[in-house]
Simulated scan of single mutants.
Amino acid sequence: MSSKIKACVTAAAFMMTGVAFAQAPDAKPTRIRGDIVSASDDTITIHRRSGDTVTVDIKKETPVAALRNIGLADIKPGSFVGTAATTGTDGKLTATEVLVFPEALRGAGEGHYAYDLSPDSTMTNANVDQVVTGTSGHDLKLSYKGGSNTITVPEGVPVVALAPATHADLVAGKKIFVLAAPVKGSEFKGLQVVVEKDGVVPPM
């Protein structure tokens, strides 16, 4: 398989993962973050950051992705990114992580809205119009359908890109991010998965 074809196949496989990273406000699925306690052929048990333990049904067709670390220098004008941020008392947005999407995922979850990574966090999926280097990091001037904003990305904030993963990477001890649909009680149906691989933990 040529590298170009492989890249296209990989991007297609991650299409839903891009949406998982930043669901629009009217979406109903739950974001599950935590550590894999155990995994079988079609079920994983996750100890969530919130302290409870849940069971997630993972089908063979459920998209699974990983991430790889990149640098601030890899964010360039024209990049399409998804970034969680917090709002300071001065109203300015400061990134807590940034995902640089492959070109095939341009437009995934586009917009700016509330996010549940931390209290008062936001998510912006947008095009990078300009990158300005300052004393506190890089200022990303972003535009999306219906608006624009500027987000400061300090040095040390995770900047990642998508990487291949399979269901074989879903093993006990790995950190995981799952977009899931509630079934009943502590049971969920997995829709999209991002799993720790090669030491890179999902920052979303």
Rank of each mutant, 00 (worst) to 15 (best):
T135M: 06
V100G: 06
T89W: 02
D74W: 09
V19S: 11
P102E: 04
N125K: 05
V56K: 01
I36D: 00
K175N: 05
M16P: 00
T96C: 12
I151R: 01
Q23A: 12
P119G: 10
K145I: 11
D116T: 11
S136E: 15
Q192I: 00
K76W: 04
T53Y: 02
V64C: 06
T135G: 00
M123S: 11
G156Q: 10
K184N: 13
A73D: 15
Y144K: 03
F101A: 07
A114P: 01
G18K: 02
V81R: 01
I5F: 09
S50I: 12
I176K: 03
L99W: 04
V100H: 02
A126S: 11
G199D: 12
A181M: 14
A13L: 14
R31D: 14
K189R: 14
T152V: 13
V171R: 14
D120Q: 13
I151A: 02
G185N: 09
D120L: 14
K184P: 00
A73S: 15
D26W: 15
F188A: 05
G78Q: 11
A172I: 09
P102F: 05
A84R: 11
T53H: 03
P25L: 13
T45R: 09
Y144E: 06
T55I: 03
G109T: 07
K197F: 13
T96K: 12
Y115V: 00
G18C: 07
L67N: 01
P29L: 05
G34D: 04
D74V: 12
P182R: 05
D26Y: 15
R33I: 09
A180G: 08
G173E: 00
G82A: 14
L105N: 12
G173C: 08
K6H: 08
T133M: 07
V100T: 11
D169P: 03
G134K: 07
A27V: 08
F188M: 08
I5H: 11
T96E: 10
S136K: 13
A165F: 04
S136W: 01
L142N: 04
G146K: 09
L99F: 14
T17Q: 06
A22K: 07
L72I: 13
D198K: 13
V9F: 11
L93R: 11
L93C: 02
A27Q: 13
Q23C: 08
T55H: 02
N127R: 10
R68W: 00
L191H: 01
A165P: 05
V194D: 01
A66W: 00
N69S: 12
P119W: 08
H112L: 13
